[in-house]
Structures are given as structure tokens and as C-alpha cells.
């Protein structure tokens, strides 16, 4: 229950003005409208993926599938590279998020502790890279020099820490009462002990939220694959999605049956690609609001 809610409940006992009622009705209406606008495109994609090709192209599909069939999905599921890329994306997302979280927690916790001399400088050093960077080509050259090209590390390491996320977590950690930390230290915990035994159990919300931030980024990322990968067996899902959605071949001669299916396949691929994320986030959602805080980096 949010603070306002609580306050409002108490005030409700005092009086519920007509203005308030009007406002609430207005509020509900605006939010309903917004929700409809948010949902519609996604529902359209879903409907189109089950609809007959010509119906999609003639604009007959609006909200419900027209002349339902699942041939587009059958076609997509037979796409050999799809499953491989699905597995790759799962791996990149899982392992990548794990690496992200470990480094971000370490960075955020150490930078939040006053006893670390020089943390102000180190924090600024990290923050600086948010606004100033070497650019795409120099970064590519570094990754190449490290011999990471065409390995999964090229996907996982260059973005291993997001400074913004680290600052969010650091702000969260700074709100943890110092007394808890000191008590643990008196019990003989070193900094790792404090972090793992005291802090992290209190930080579930932050971990979940930041973890979700990272996971979405991994799931939807394709550019690092374009930059760093030359082996189809390493491609993530988004590369396949782009091939299906954006492909404009130069010389071609695809069969007519496939041509007629192309639009439906496009939508089915989109659905397959976004489904896992859409299924996961509602379960993590309750942590979101508790897990993020942003503030100055000066302390």
C-alpha cells in the first residue's frame, strides 16, 4: 500500500468530496485509455500471426484473427536456426545477467561504503563514461585485440556493467542503515560477509529490478552480435528476427507458397521472440518500484 493511499484512506473517513470523485473517475478513464493504447499493437501482432496472409495485407485484421490457422507457426518452428538462436539468447541472457549482477553488486556496494578511501574519485571515474565514450569503432578494435571476436564473451563482456544501473543500486545500498553493517562487522564479518549475509538478503527488490533491466537488454540486443559475431551457430534470436522482419534480398527466387506466407511468418516470429519476456516480467514486477532509487553520486 503506498503512502498516499494510506493517507487517503484515513482522509476518506473524514470526507470524500465531489471533486475527488470526479478526479478519480477521470483518472480511471485516462488510465484505461492508455492501457488500451499500450495493448493494442501487441494484440494486433498476435492476431495477425494467426490470420490468413491476404487478410493481413488487405487490412482486415484489426483485433481478432481472420480465418484462423497456425501454418505460420509451423513454418517458424521448422526454421532450423531459430531453436539454436533461441538457446543462444537464453544462454546470453542467463549468463550475461549473472555476470552483470555480480559486477554491479560488487561495484555498487564498494562504492557505497564510506570507509573506502577514494570512492568519490572512483565513482566519478565510472560516471564519466556515461557521457564520454570511445565510440563504436575504437571499442570494436579493443574487443578484437582481446581476441574476443566470435566468442560468447564478445557478447557478454563489453556491456558487463551499466553505469546507470550501478548508480541505481548504489543509491539503494546507501539507504541501508549503517548500524546493521556495523553490527555485523562486530560479529566478525568481513566486507564480503556483510554483503552476502546482511545486505543482499535485504536487497531482493533491487536485485530483481536491476536484474530485469539487464535481462531485457540482453534479450533485445542484436547490435553486439552484428559487431562481434561471424558464426551463425552463435547468433542470438534478434539477428534471426531481423532477418525475417527486415530482409531485402538482392537476388532471389523464393517459391510462391513461401512468398504468400511471408507476412504471417513475420508476425509469428515476432510473437515467438517476445513471448518469454512478456511471460516473465509480471512476476518480477512487484519488485520494480521498491528496487530503484536514483540520487546524487557525490556522497
Amino acid at each position: 500500500m503506498s503512502v498516499t493511499e494510506a493517507a487517503v484512506r484515513r482522509s476518506n473517513r473524514i470526507r470524500v468530496s465531489r471533486g475527488r470523485k470526479l478526479f478519480l473517475a477521470f483518472n480511471t478513464a485516462v488510465l484505461l485509455l492508455l492501457c488500451a493504447a499500450m495493448l493494442y499493437p501487441v494484440l494486433f501482432v498476435l492476431a495477425a500471426s494467426f490470420s490468413e496472409e491476404t487478410a493481413i495485407l488487405k487490412g482486415e485484421v484489426t483485433l481478432l484473427p481472420v480465418r484462423v490457422h497456425i501454418r505460420a507457426y509451423e513454418k517458424v518452428f521448422h526454421y532450423p536456426l531459430l531453436w539454436k538462436s533461441y538457446a543462444n539468447t537464453l544462454l546470453y541472457t542467463g549468463l550475461g545477467t549473472a555476470i552483470n549482477l555480480v559486477l554491479t553488486v560488487f561495484g555498487a556496494w564498494s562504492l557505497s561504503q564510506k570507509k573506502m578511501v577514494g570512492r568519490r574519485f572512483l565513482t566519478l571515474m565510472c560516471t564519466f563514461t556515461m557521457f564520454f565514450n570511445g565510440g563504436m569503432i575504437p571499442t570494436f578494435l579493443v574487443v578484437k585485440e582481446l581476441k574476443l571476436l566470435n566468442t560468447l564473451w564478445a557478447i557478454l563482456l563489453p556491456g558487463a556493467v551499466s553505469t546507470y544501473n550501478m548508480i541505481l543500486m548504489r543509491t539503494f545500498f546507501m539507504a541501508i542503515p549503517q548500524s546493521l553493517v556495523e553490527a555485523a562487522e562486530l560479529d566478525g564479518c568481513n566486507d564480503f560477509g556483510v554483503l552476502f549475509r546482511i545486505v543482499l538478503p535485504l536487497s531482493l527488490a533491487s536485485l530483481m529490478t536491476i536484474g530485469m533491466f539487464y535481462a531485457v537488454a540482453h534479450w533485445n540486443s542484436y547490435f553486439s552480435a552484428v559487431l562481434y559475431l561471424n558464426r551463425p551457430e552463435l547468433y542470438p534470436l534478434q539477428i534471426i528476427l531481423r532477418q525475417v522482419v527486415l530482409m531485402n534480398e538482392i537476388v532471389e527466387n523464393a517459391s510462391s507458397t513461401e512468398n504468400v506466407m511471408a507476412e504471417g511468418i513475420k508476425y509469428a516470429t515476432i510473437v515467438v521472440a517476445m513471448l518469454p519476456m512478456l511471460c516473465v516480467y509480471p512476476f518480477v514486477q512487484r519488485y520494480f518500484v521498491k528496487g530503484v532509487m536514483v540520487g546524487s553520486v557525490k556522497e
Binding site: 556496494w109 562504492l111 565510472c126 554483503l195
Partner: peptide, 18 residues
């Protein structure tokens, strides 16, 4: 704890600036 983070920033954020 900060060491791996520091290495990361040096390798992937500052080295490209060079």
C-alpha cells in the same frame, strides 16, 4: 570487490578512449 569492476572500466570504457 571493486577490482573486477575497475578492470572492466579500464578495458572496455577507457581503453577505447585511447
Amino acid at each position: 570487490m571493486f577490482l573486477p569492476v575497475f578492470v572492466y572500466y579500464m578495458l572496455f570504457r577507457y581503453a577505447p578512449m585511447v
